[in-house]
């Protein structure tokens, strides 16, 4: 259980996190979303006591992080997989971390086994690929068998196999009843892993809701219907107060009616339907819509089109 209250952090004149308040519930995966530079990493650093907030408080199980008796038994955090001394072997890296929390030495071998690094345990980590470094970082988070796990952009730069591995791991950790708090600027990644979402932009909270609420709350849900009697159906729909617009290749895009209502309407009017589909706005679109005004560094696309951001760079 992590409680963030009124968190504010400034670096010089720039406010990275601005009066942020949210809580993270145990036993599920909470996605922490925002465009690059939104303040996700800063928030995580403040939770871990690496950075000192200018205002506000952060509590883990009711205590400030530095006051936890055995921090690694409470929280396992991976902010940057490359934040290791490259000259140290994987085993010694994990050993020196385990020792700080008086964890048994055998634990090092166990977590190495779990992440599949046993064979390279004696090798210096500077030779590790990003995927291996990520596994080493995750091994470190699991040393203390923590109740809360925090990952900052864990899939950044990983190949599809590594991404799948991390996704499965996060789901498995949540299924074991742990709290998983994972940040990403990739909406598509959250779509597959998160139960709950916290969305921030420019250091401010934009949304704190479940995944389904997030999707439902976006304006983009509509129904696609296909029929040989286009004009007749469109008139009937308009008569119901919903809006119908001609879509691509002869389909009709309907807003303001569910598939059930549309199906019943068509039946009563004696209109044959060839397709009746709910088209949900993708999470990606919902996210873009929400954060459009809070993207910090944007490149304006030529021709005055929608600004492009890195948000949608899919997996």
């Amino acid at each position: 259980m992590i409680e963030v209250r009124g968190l504010t952090k400034r670096y010089g004149a720039k406010t990275a996190v601005d009066d942020l308040t949210f809580g993270i519930e145990p036993g599920k995966v909470t996605g922490f979303l925002g465009p690059n530079g939104a303040g996700k990493t800063t928030t995580m650093r403040c939770i871990l006591g690496l950075d000192y907030p200018d205002a506000g408080t952060v509590a883990v199980d009711g205590k400030s992080y530095p006051d936890l008796a055995y921090p690694m038994r409470e929280v396992g955090a991976l902010l940057d997989a490359k934040a290791v001394h490259g000259g140290r072997s994987a085993r010694n890296h994990l050993l020196c971390l385990a020792q700080t929390n008086s964890l048994p030495r055998r634990r090092v071998g166990e977590v190495l086994e779990l992440v599949g690094l046993t064979e390279v345990a004696g090798k210096r980590s500077k030779g590790f690929s990003l995927g291996m470094s990520q596994r080493l970082g995750i091994a470190a988070t699991l040393l203390g068998d923590p109740k809360v796990l925090m990952f900052d952009e864990p899939v950044n730069g990983l190949d599809p196999e590594g991404i799948l591995w991390i996704r499965n791991l996060m789901r498995a950790l949540a299924a074991e009843g742990r709290t998983v708090f994972v940040s990403s600027h990739l909406m598509s990644e959250m779509e597959h892993t998160a139960d709950h979402l916290i969305v921030i932009g420019r250091g401010k909270l934009i949304a704190d809701c479940t995944m389904s609420e997030f999707i439902a709350g976006s304006s983009g849900a509509w129904v696609r219907v296909r029929t040989p009697s286009v004009d007749q159906l469109m008139r009937a729909i308009n008569a119901q107060g919903a809006t119908a617009a001609a879509g691509e290749d002869g389909s009709i895009e309907v807003r303001g009616m569910t598939t059930e209502q549309l199906g019943d309407l068509a039946f009563s009017e004696g209109i044959r339907l060839h397709e009746l589909t709910t088209v949900r706005a993708s999470l990606e679109e919902a996210f873009m819509e929400l954060t459009a005004s809070s993207v910090e560094y944007r490149a304006d696309a030529p021709g005055g089109q929608q600004p492009s951001t890195t948000i949608g760079s899919g997996v």
Partner: peptide, 29 residues
């Protein structure tokens, strides 16, 4: 990193902790 190994394995439980992480562990580390 050829295999995708994760969720089917679980870590053995840790012995319960007493006291508090302090200087002794930090010195060893």
């Amino acid at each position: 990193m050829a295999t995708i190994t994760t969720s089917d394995r679980r870590l053995p439980a840790l012995p319960p902790a007493t006291g508090r992480a302090g200087l002794r562990g930090a010195l060893a580390s």
